[in-house]
Design a protein around this nucleic acid. Structure first.
Lengths: 244, 244
DNA sequence: CGCGAGCTTGATGCCGATCAATGCATGTGG
DNA sequence: CCACATGCATTGATCGGCATCAAGCTCGCG
């Protein structure tokens, strides 16, 4: 960063080929030659401070963003002020896929901690994925995975009760953190109870109460945003509704 | 069908270029030359009788399907028998996008009336969309649109009350039917109250009661599955929560 | 130190689930 | 043609889970 002054202070060179997230991010499974090409595509990063938005609903869509470090939420809102968190994104996950449909973003992406994203100009990605089958296929998989994930959230919102929702949420979060080399049993929540509640279709008081109940039941240790999972199988059991 | 015997009785030639759905379906916005190419890709149709599945969760993914005539639902289910309708698809809409992520389908697609779909072999679609920018872009838009739609459903499931959900559902349905040349005010539901309820995260009794309430309020006329919309602005008002 | 954002916990009420009975349309076989 | 079965829809009575309202509490920070 110091040796490479650029016009935009927040934009600087990066390389997918040497990125430690390449096994989680867009480059998954690409051959060396493809990777080098990808380096020409993903040329800049952008820093987003905690609380700032990466993009807003209504913004012109030009790029996708891969989370490099940090943590984001995405939320949609209806005409009347109702709004809904649609997801939380961590390192290696893509933001902005919603924008392709209309050439405008249809949700807000907000950094929940100081973050960095890699900027992926969309038209260049289309160009490159016409050349490289593997990249094309990988990109399609990522979009499809987002659709499958959304269907899972619908199942959660449509048919689970508060405890089941929170358990499923925690298990999903730890699983993704584990894939990134973090502990499977201990985590720090980057989002408020209200944001968790919005994502899960619950009020913040219910989220808080459910955390307390899990603690009483010996499933978790909860200290504000510090969570330790004491009984993972127990949580799993809740999600699978074996208690019925 | 009579003059063209084929090995599979249910498979026969079709052409996107002469399809009356081409303004709603995959071919939207394609030039004549691209359309002709698309004809080579979308070579067969398949008939699905009411109640039968087009594909099931776990099936190997090979093709996307465009609804030609008829009506489908898609549903996901969790290990414990819980299941959730994730969408209803009508003419011109694509089925099977979930399958790309894993090479296996992750939901069931069930015909709610006797239907016909165009079979779109996925690997050939990838090949062709590497040649034709417009097709590539159109396909991406369709996937993105599905993501945006899913986010809308999350908003509905996460933050709306029963009346708002049903009103939003009816308005969405009539809007799509209208785009296909049907009446904006009169429709026949192809799905049961239970299926509507599953989609909206409600029980069938609640759906039924809410229909009755809408009728009492002069918003609808409900006779079993025959619905006539008497006060569309009234429904719209419900969705937008102006009553708050 | 004191402020404020976020979290916890309690009391109460309501929306929608649940349980249960009846109604209505379609189809089938005697 | 009617009796009966079946699947779906309606309606009522009751119950429970979560929302809502309302205090306090905790912790980080100016």
């Amino acid at each position: 960063m110091t040796e490479m002054p650029s016009v935009k202070p927040e934009a600087f060179k990066v390389a997918c080929s040497s990125c430690n997230l390449r096994e989680l991010c867009l480059p998954v499974g690409l051959a060396r030659a493809d990777l080098d090409k990808l380096d020409t595509l993903v040329a800049t990063r952008r820093t987003v401070s905690r609380g700032d938005t990466l993009f807003r609903s209504g913004d012109i869509f030009q790029s996708l963003y891969a989370v490099r470090t940090g943590f984001f939420k995405t939320c949609v809102s209806s005409e009347d002020g109702r709004d809904q968190v649609t997801g939380f994104q961590m390192a290696g996950e893509l933001l902005g896929l919603d924008g392709i449909s209309n050439d405008r973003h249809s949700c807000d992406a907000v950094a929940l901690e100081d973050s960095q994203v890699c900027v992926i100009p969309y038209d260049q990605l289309e160009d490159l994925s016409r050349e490289f089958t593997d990249l094309q296929h990988q990109f399609h998989k990522i979009m499809s995975r987002e659709i499958v994930r959304d269907h899972g959230v619908m199942l959660l919102l449509g048919s689970m009760r508060a405890e089941e929702r929170l358990a499923a949420f925690l298990l999903n979060l730890t699983q993704r953190l584990q894939a990134r080399g973090f502990s499977a049993s201990s985590l720090i929540l980057r989002m408020t109870r209200e944001e968790i509640g919005s994502y899960l279709g619950l009020k913040l008081e219910t989220v808080s109460r459910t955390f307390s109940k899990f603690q009483d039941d010996g499933l978790l240790e909860v200290k504000q945003r510090h969570i330790r999972i004491l009984d993972q199988p127990g949580l799993q059991l809740l999600v699978n509704g074996a208690a019925c």
